[in-house]
Nucleic acid binder design. Structure first.
Lengths: 351, 351
DNA sequence: TTGTAAGCGTTATCAG
DNA sequence: CTGATAACGCTTACAA
């Protein structure tokens, strides 16, 4: 693979002329331009991004940090990021944290030192935690001598100064709970997402507010905390079933826990939805495969990724830009885990 | 974020001394070493990989190109790659092709121009196709002026000269088919993976060979080609059901098509496995969620990724190394889609 | 053991 | 419009 020098030599021009042709930085006479183009073609020349990066202080790479590649959720987000990345000319460096904030910090520091142009971060940092708080501040004041590295947060508003792409978690929870209420349920339990995260507290808030609004009692006994995983939903449901208080419906803070919950109900001999109805949030394809398929609130996963990349691009173009939170819409999807009228088809497309 | 110069100034030494301390390239007196270390700590210095990359012609980045982030298969592979990448000091650039060879070529070319240190590639290129063949050759003879860029192929042996991590596809198919035969099936249909790829032909070969070996007839009428996707399995099964020839079992070349196939059977009123048994290959978690859960042949997805990264690392350390194909083991997993004795539990862990 | 200086491939400045 | 040259941050001969 040839370098700019070879091209210049072959075309009989200076390297600056080649550079100007490549980048259209300055006008070049048609004569020289065509000679350069020809040389480029013959030598299969392409700009070396490392050399350019050193000079321009830009790598055209963005780092993406997510808890897991293997959940059904983030792969879809990643698709959106990738697609938008192609559009805006960025390649994607991926990092998995396994939900460990220390790993997350390590990856962030690495990216900050790497002159990555930006970071998209689905963080597990906890604002209530002093050390995490310091880390979150560091996301704002990071950057090498030359420039700050912009960060876009996925799913939660990490800091008033950090851009974010989120959904209205209270509203999504409310949608789910209202659906259960509309079916006549009054005793509704909740399997919450981790309450040290915004997602957990906001969806819990939405659940409580909606219950109150409908004049229904919120009973702490009927709230169990999971960790997003199916197995945690399974155990949470088993715990709920041991309680004194009886319930006829469960709102799980995500589909994975909802699926685990349904498994627990079936294992204990309950019928879903006749005895106990279940709804989740996310609308992932596995939710359509189980029997009964899980009702859910659809989140625009692909779009979240796409918008995150878009937002990052905007900020990279204009660092002074006002900080911005993009809130995307969610939507109720009724399946048979709440209503026998609900859809029962498997989703066989897109995976 | 400080540069090497600031560190040198602060420590009162030359930049080469700082470099030597960082890289332990040459011995440095304890006196200076400690001064440098202190300066590094105070300034929070970390080597700038771009500058280093320009000089050393190494980026410590590997590109990973897969058909889709969103299938259940590759995310698990990606986890293995990521984990091994951390171990060996490489970060991961990801690219999605959507199964489009043109996109794949584009991404490969990009990586070759980027001075990526290596490429892990799950290719959709077709050796029978002239243009693809040329492309495959270019994987061998690529590289910039300074060095070749090693490629590790995932899942198929692209070229005798390219390292690969694969499974024994014939054997996996044979395992699946033998399982069906052991259950007494004699009329076994096959939903094949795309036959322009090795995976498709090898699994078909395994199917045919195993049938012959058991003295069973292979009937072309009972072989349908899918495209890996669940919906293609659905349609393939519908086609099979229209045939004159009847069958009592189906071997699908992957789980996704197997799932689609089961859906088709249920929609047409067949009982699985009583009327028709189904088995796939992959053993992905969604296969455990459907009713009846799909029997399968487990592929070591995580390990494939890990080994691919490992192999790439070996090659990067020693480009002259003999070319190598790593073949990983697969394993039968019996569920209720073939045998009512099979496992019926949902996999609630790891996703 | 330490420092000086060249050079990696590119862009940008500035003089012609 | 074109070309020579400095500079980006770092590593590495080579000189001291």
């Amino acid at each position: 693979m040839a370098g700019i020098k070879e091209v210049a030599r072959k075309a009989g021009v200076s390297i600056s002329t080649v550079s100007n042709v490549m980048n259209e930085t300055k006008p070049v006479s048609p004569e020289l331009k065509s000679r350069v183009m020809e040389a480029i073609g013959e030598l299969q020349y392409a700009v070396n991004p490392v050399g350019r990066g050193l000079k321009s202080n830009k790598t055209n790479q963005v780092g993406v940090i997510v808890p897991s590649f293997n959940q059904v959720y983030f792969p879809a987000v990643l698709q959106g990021i990738h697609e938008a990345g192609i559009k805006y000319g960025y390649t994607i460096l991926v990092f998995e944290t396994n939900g460990d904030v220390e790993q997350e910090k390590k990856h962030v520091r690495f990216l900050q030192h790497s002159w990555t142009d930006g970071i998209i971060l689905a963080s597990y940092a906890n604002r209530e935690n002093i050390s995490d708080r310091k880390y979150i501040r560091s996301l704002l004041e990071n950057g090498n001598r030359k420039k700050e590295i912009p960060v876009v947060s996925l799913e939660n508003v990490l800091d008033p100064g950090i851009d974010a792409v989120v959904i209205d978690n209270r509203k999504a929870a409310s949608t789910a709970v209202n659906h259960l209420i509309s079916l006549g349920h009054t005793r509704i339990a909740h399997i919450a997402a981790p309450l040290r995260f915004q997602i957990g507290t906001l969806r819990l808030d939405g659940y409580k507010a909606t219950m109150h609004k409908a004049g229904l009692a919120v009973e702490d006994e009927l709230i169990m905390e999971g960790d997003y995983s199916p197995i945690s939903g399974y155990h949470a449901m088993k715990e709920l079933l041991k309680k004194e208080r009886k319930f006829t419906a469960v709102f799980a803070a995500n589909d994975q826990m909802g699926i685990g919950g349904i498994r627990a109900l079936l294992d204990e001999g309950y019928r879903v939805p006749e005895d106990i109805a279940v709804i989740g949030i996310d609308n992932n394809f596995p939710s359509t495969l189980i029997t009964p398929p899980l009702s859910s609130v659809n989140l625009p996963k692909y779009d979240m990724g796409y918008q995150a990349m878009h937002l990052l691009n905007e900020r990279m173009k204009d660092p002074g830009r006002l900080r911005c939170v993009i809130t995307l819409e969610s939507e109720l999807v009724i399946r048979k885990s709440t209503s026998s009228d609900g859809s029962g088809t498997w989703n066989l497309i897109g995976w």
